[in-house]
Each structure stands twice: as C-alpha cells, then as structure tokens.
C-alpha cells in the first residue's frame, strides 16, 4: 500500500520516484484506447502490438540513421502504422468475430517472427539500442497525448462517426439497411486504431534505451485486450481505467509477492464474472448479484 500512501501524502515525491510507472500507465492507456476504437465499432482486432512495433521501429531507426527531430520520428512512425493498417485492414475486415481476432494474431506473429527477427536493420533478435531515449522527460509527452487522444475519441464517439460505429456494432445488417457504408466505417475504425497503436509504440520506444522485439507478441495483445474489456469498452474512459488498474495492480498488491500472477488472474475472473460490462459501464457501480446473495426486501412496484 506504500504506493497509494505516498500518492496521497507526498504527490511530488511520488511523481519523481514513479515517473516511469506513470509513463507506462499513459502508454498502456493509449494502447487500450486503440483497442477501444475497434471494439466500439464491433471488431475484435488484436493487431495493436503489430502496429506498435511498426511505430516504435520506424521512430527509433529514423532517429538512429537520420537524426530527425522527435516530432518527425513520431509522425513518421504513426503514419507508417496507419498506412500498414489500411493495407492490412482492406482484406481482413471481411472477417468477423473470432476469425478477425485470429487473422490479426497471424498478422502480428508473422510480422514479429517473420519480418522483425529476420531483417538486419531491426537488429533481429537483439533489438535496437535507442541512445536518445528519455525515460524522465518522456512522461510529459505521454500524458499530454493521452489527454488529447481521450478527448478526441470522446468527441468522435459523440459525433456522426461514433453513431455509425455503434450501429455497426449492434447490428451490421440493420446498419447497412439504414444506408451506413459498413466496410468504410469499419476501415476508418481499424486505421484510427492502427494510428493510435503506432503512436503509442513510438512514444514507448522513446522511454526505454532498448527496443526489445519480444515486446510485440501475443502476450502484449492479450494484455491490451484485457485493459479494454476489463475497463469497459462502451465508454472512452473505460480502457483508461482498465489500463490504470491493471498496470498499478502489482504495485498496489505488493503483499502478494511472488503470487501476484495467481492473485491477478483470480481478480480478473472475479471482475469479469461479476461485472461483464467492465468497470466503467452501464449500471453505475452495481455488480451483478450472485444468486446466493440476499436480495433487497423492498421491490419497486411493477409498472405492468
């Protein structure tokens, strides 16, 4: 609990001693937001780490070889991830549900195992050394961009695009019958998600001195999916809350020690079972009541 105690008693010391943790929460939140966009449009795409890898490698390689300014590195990484997102999205978005999930897993594995580990320029299995990384100063960039991302996504979901996504998510056939161009809106969501993941990858690569190719595999995608679903994928804030909760979990439950994996698995199951819509979702803070739990005595009169 010392982490929480410190946060409330001495926020400045907390900020300086946990800068990297705060940055990682921000990165994970942006990633979870990228997952949110695809989930919000009704697609179970697990491609985020692949786009992250593209963003991260592009940014670091540009910095290493051309010494371009940071903003250019980030922009290039993000743009390339978006471009690949459009190319991959076109054929893949015909697939639905689990099929899309598996196809995107195929994409990230083929990218990391087939391409990154075999190209000499990416440092293969050893990864790259990023000498210009800035673990301390990077936190400002991350937190500002997180705020911008969440605000933009909130505006998007309240606008024309958001309504179209909701319609597609709830019933594709009905959406099409209302004149919504389903493939177009799906592709828009996929590309926005790729851009966000690429940006998160570029921003993350700026925090660490070493770019490790093993970071961008299936475990990462499972983690990001968990952030988004556990936090609640019906609201922009859900993924951020999920990322915040799960990233700080090992620090808050320090007493669990080596058993943190067991404890977090159990907590994961408990939350999803008692609150399938996620932490932030419909129903306020009410949990789904187990059947053995006593019911309240007074009932609202039936409205017939």
């Amino acid at each position: 609990m010392d982490l929480l105690t410190q946060l409330f008693t001495d926020p400045f010391a907390f900020w300086t001693s946990h800068t990297l943790l705060i940055s990682q929460i921000g990165i994970n939140s942006i990633l979870a937001s990228s997952m949110f966009v695809v989930l919000y449009s009704g697609q179970l795409s697990l491609a985020a780490p692949g786009f992250m890898a593209i963003g991260a490698y592009t940014a670091v390689l540009m910095d290493l070889y051309w010494h371009t300014p940071l903003a250019v590195d980030f922009a290039a990484g993000t743009a390339l991830a978006g471009l690949v997102g459009a190319i991959v999205g076109l054929p893949v978005l015909r697939l639905r549900g689990v099929f899309l999930a598996i196809a995107t897993i195929g994409f990230i594995e083929a990218l990391s195992l087939g391409v990154i580990l075999n190209l000499p320029i990416t440092g293969e299995g050893l990864g790259l050394k990023n000498i210009d990384a800035d673990p301390v100063g990077g936190v400002n960039i991350v937190l500002i961009s997180l705020a911008v991302v969440v605000y933009l996504l909130w505006r998007l979901t309240k606008g024309r695009l958001g309504y179209a996504w909701t319609a597609v998510r709830q019933d594709e056939l009905a959406a099409r019958s209302q004149g919504i161009d389903v493939p177009r809106y799906k592709l828009i969501a996929f590309v926005i998600s790729a851009l966000l993941a690429g940006y998160a990858g570029a921003a993350e690569s700026h925090l660490y001195f070493i770019l490790d190719p093993n970071e961008y595999g299936v475990p990462r995608t499972v983690q990001v999916l968990t952030f988004a679903v556990l936090g609640g994928s019906g609201n922009v804030l859900g993924p951020v809350v999920g990322a915040l909760f799960l990233t700080t979990f090992p620090f808050i439950f320090k007493q669990a020690g080596d058993y943190i994996g067991v404890v977090s698995g159990a907590v994961l199951i408990a939350i999803i079972v008692f609150r399938p819509q996620g932490i932030v979702g419909r129903g306020g803070f009410a949990f789904v009541r187990p059947r053995w739990w006593p019911r309240p005595q007074s009932r609202a009169p039936s409205t017939g």
């Binding site: 179970l44 556990l230 994996g261 067991v262 977090s264 698995g265 907590v267 994961l268 199951i269 999803i272």
Partner: peptide, 19 residues
C-alpha cells in the same frame, strides 16, 4: 455476457495456472 467476456475469464484462469 458477450462472448468476449469469456475470452477474458479464460485468460484469467490461464494466468493463474501458469503463475
């Protein structure tokens, strides 16, 4: 619950077993 919830709960169990 939506099918994606079952995905997460089985991930949680896998996490427990492996840990």
């Amino acid at each position: 619950a939506p099918p994606i919830a079952a995905l997460i709960s089985t991930i949680g169990l896998a996490l427990i077993i492996i840990a």
